[in-house]
Design a protein around this nucleic acid. Structure first.
Lengths: 364, 364
DNA sequence: ACATTTCTTGGTAGCGCTACCGTACCTTTG
DNA sequence: CAAAGGTACGGTAGCGCTACCAAGAAATGT
């Protein structure tokens, strides 16, 4: 007896629980998945048996039998940048305490890679997909539309989501920071960036539109736009085409050379803004009196710099978190949630753009 | 015909491939998993059939039938800190192109949570486990020792690994930075930290031992040590008990008040070092002349600061990457790899500790 | 009173794959 | 040339779970 085959690993199965509780296996299965289908008394007996045997359901068997999993596929374009670390943190926080399993894929900002990963993930019949951005190619979009599971796009916004979009408008954020700089009294406002993706381009568009409206647009104040696929940063500890603070210092020098009247710059991200601040420190350019600096994302360091650095807060953690919560509601059968959720942004006005001296010293 | 049951999703199965190739299903299975067991001719026919049908193996069924998966469980203590984002990036880069699936768990620096997650992951019969740190509790350790799969500890080092350890000595890193500060001419060297984990404590021990040997140890120069479980940072966009640059500015003020002679500080991490630099800028303390600053980890921003900030480079990406490569070798049956891998650290001497003026201006 | 619906439970038959064993054929050896 | 071993392939029987169908008990309607 008990000549256990080598095919099992000795853990209790649903049949063991059923035997111990004196019920059928299928009843145990129901009690576990949807207790409301089982009578109070049996439910209790089954729960006891589960606890005594320390039974844990085999997820592979469940997935095989029911053609569905608890996997949520999450696609991000980069793991190098802190932005997406924050998004993933929100995702994991949102999944905490649920049965959802997170599976992360890195598209490396490549549409082809994105398409490949979508296909691969969908083959696993995931419970849902969360994907960064709204600029999937037509084939990717078609796959997602016929995926038969909730699909949530994040970190951008559109009025034509695949299914649901949770994010904010980069274009509006660009407009807002431009208005802030103009209000602060700057007149020769530049834009500094390294490699640009579609969201960065949205911010730039917002900035330039606003500057044009104010009659302050000057192309010499914009760093050359680099798009296309970034140099892949995989398989190396360092970064390549993404924004680096060192690169930002060089780019600032270039801009100042091309247009010495420049008196403020909106940096495509916070890291570059820090680099610019340090370049100003080195050159003895006074911030904010001679020169205004604004970043994007509002990482912690911005508030702690001296002078403190203005930025635009982007809801990165919130995007991930809200996406998973929305996913959980959908998977619980609640279809009533909105399909377009604008989480907004927030201009954080700090010392580095306080030319007018409006802030108290405690705020600096 | 073709009254497809609702139980399948219409994708081709191994049986479809077998039928098309005119062979048995088991032969297809073998051809896919270990082509050397199948004759050249059949292999080709099967490959063709696979391609024509666009067949993709069902991983759940494979896992169920063979009681093993391609999942690698990765346990990190935090997703809030960039350190572990870098580790995860290395992990994903290392797994790129293999069939391994990464599953991340966040222990929130809690031994109990770690134990729970280990149990949960082992129940999935993972192909291997990667776990941060070497300070698992006895029950966790016992579970991992009898897990029957490769277990790789990372980001620290020990001569008594559970299985394999890939990391570096925090104690030696602490000694090294202490020597660097002494060499640079500082005499009242402090240590600044927020919440401390066992690895931070190792660095501090290295620092204080070295200072004692040099007769320069002064407890008033050490911020109060905060250990135990950190305030959980889950379910919120912000951080709590972890190092923040704002907190660092306050802590520096406290230390300077307690011991005005302090002339250098080793910060538990780079973020705090940045905060300290900004506090010095605000107070008009000259760096490095009046005060030396060193951080830990060597994030990009350190080299770009002005003055550039000294730090200790820690192999975060490398830890994750090498761990996965070692895992892959083990899973391929190569047991010859070393069980203890010291990836080392590197003191990055920069402007913020260059009291002696040894660096050229280009290096600053 | 009986028919009808609702609720609770169980049996059976897979889900797609691989472990195990068996068979046919080929090679080697004394 | 028989015996022994090796190689290439296939059949069978599960892995642990759930979809589907069925049936009995209880509740409800007429």
């Amino acid at each position: 007896m008990n000549l256990r085959s080598r095919r099992t690993d000795g853990r209790p199965t649903i049949a063991d629980v059923a035997r111990r509780a004196g019920v059928g296996a299928i009843t145990v299965s129901r009690a576990l998945r949807d207790p409301s289908q089982v009578s109070e008394a049996l439910r209790r007996t089954i729960d006891d048996a589960v606890r005594e045997l320390n039974y844990v359901p085999n997820l592979n068997a469940r997935a095989l039998a029911s053609i569905r999993t608890d996997i949520v596929g999450v696609l991000v374009p980069s793991l190098t940048q802190n932005i997406f670390s924050d998004v993933l943190r929100g995702v994991y926080d949102g999944a905490d305490g649920s049965s959802l399993q997170i599976q992360v894929g890195n598209t490396h900002y490549s549409e082809d890679e994105e398409e490949r990963l979508i296909g691969q993930m969908l083959r696993q019949k995931p419970a849902g997909m969360i994907i960064s951005g709204t600029d999937q190619n037509p084939r990717s979009r078609a796959m997602l539309e016929s995926a038969g599971c909730p699909v949530i796009q994040i970190m951008d916004i559109t009025d034509d989501p695949i299914d649901t979009v949770i994010g904010f408008s980069h274009y509006e954020a660009g407009r807002a920071i431009a208005r802030h700089l103009i209000d602060a009294g700057y007149r020769h406002i530049g834009f500094l960036s390294g490699w640009m993706n579609s969201r960065s381009l949205g911010r730039l568009a917002g900035l330039t539109d606003t500057l044009k409206e104010a009659g302050m647009y000057n192309p010499k104040l914009i760093t050359p736009i680099v798009t296309g696929e970034p140099v892949h940063e995989r398989k190396s500890p360092g970064k390549t085409s993404f924004a680096t603070p060192v690169g930002a210092r060089k780019l600032l020098s270039n801009l100042l050379e091309a247009e010495p009247r420049m008196d403020a710059v909106f940096c495509n991200n916070d890291v570059m803004a820090l680099g610019v601040l340090f370049e100003c420190l080195k050159r003895g350019i006074r911030v904010p009196e001679d020169f205004g600096i604004a970043g994007f994302n509002d990482f912690d360091i911005m508030a702690a710099a001296h002078p403190s650095l203005s930025s635009v807060y982007s809801p990165r953690w919130e995007s991930g978190y809200e996406a998973v919560l929305a996913m959980r509601r959908r998977l619980d059968g609640d279809e009533s949630g909105p399909r377009i959720v604008d989480l907004g942004y927030r201009v954080m006005a700090r010392g580095s753009t306080d030319r007018a001296g409006r802030l108290t010293s405690a705020e600096l």
